[in-house]
C-alpha cells in the first residue's frame, strides 16, 4: 500500500518536473523572441521542423474538421520548414526589412501549458499564446491563440519538431505578420 502510494507520488513528481522543464523551455524561447535573438531562436528548431499556421474558417456546427486550412493541400498563413524560417531570420537582420525597421516591441505570453503525450524522445504540448506587438508610435496588435507543439529531446534540452499555431482570427486584423509565434 505504502509502496503503491510512493510509486504514484513518484510518477506525479516526475510529471510535474517534466511540465516545469517544458515550461522553462517555452518561456526561454519567448525570451529569445522578445529580445530579438532570432538566430538563437532558430537553433531551437530541428532540421526537419514544420511551422504551420492555418487560416481559420467559419463553419457549421458539426463541421469542425473543416475549421482550419490543411497543411497538405491548402494555402495557410505559414506552412514551412526551417529553411524558410532561416530566410525570415536573415531578412530581419538586414536592417532594411522595412516592416520591422525600426524593430517592433513584442511581448510573448505563454500560458496553459499542458502535456498531451510524453514519449521517451518526444512530447506533445499544448499552450496558449498572447503576442503583443507595438511599433513606431502607436501601432498595436494582439495575436491570441493556441499552439500545439511536438518537442524532441536534444541532450539536456529540447528542440521544436512541429509547431501548429491556431490564431483565433478569421480576418487577420494586423496588416502583416512579422512576428514569430
Amino acid at each position: 500500500m505504502v509502496a503503491e502510494q510512493t510509486r504514484t507520488r513518484d510518477a506525479a513528481i516526475e510529471r510535474l518536473l517534466l511540465v516545469c522543464e517544458i515550461e522553462e523551455f517555452l518561456f526561454a524561447e519567448a525570451e529569445l523572441l522578445d529580445q530579438h535573438h532570432y538566430s538563437e531562436w532558430l537553433d531551437l528548431f530541428t532540421e526537419d521542423a514544420h511551422y504551420f499556421m492555418p487560416i481559420r474558417r467559419n463553419v457549421k456546427y458539426g463541421e469542425q474538421d473543416r475549421e482550419s486550412t490543411s497543411d497538405e493541400t491548402d494555402v495557410s498563413w505559414f506552412d514551412e520548414g526551417k529553411g524558410t524560417l532561416a530566410g525570415r531570420v536573415r531578412q530581419l537582420a538586414t536592417g532594411y526589412h522595412w516592416a520591422e525597421e525600426p524593430q517592433s516591441r513584442t511581448t510573448h505570453m505563454v500560458t496553459n501549458v499542458q502535456i498531451v503525450d510524453a514519449g521517451p524522445q518526444e512530447v506533445s504540448v499544448r499552450s496558449r499564446f498572447l503576442v503583443y506587438r507595438n511599433r513606431l508610435m502607436d501601432e498595436t496588435d494582439f495575436f491570441v491563440g493556441k499552439r500545439e507543439d511536438v518537442l524532441r529531446r536534444d541532450g539536456d534540452s529540447w528542440k521544436i519538431a512541429r509547431r501548429k499555431i491556431l490564431l483565433d482570427q478569421k480576418v487577420l486584423l494586423a496588416k502583416n505578420v512579422t512576428v514569430f509565434f
Binding site: P54, I55, T69, V75, W77, V171, L172, A174, K175
Partner: peptide, 9 residues
C-alpha cells in the same frame, strides 16, 4: 487553391 488570405491594412 483552398484558403483565401483576408486581412486589414
Amino acid at each position: 487553391l483552398d484558403g483565401v488570405h483576408i486581412w486589414r491594412m
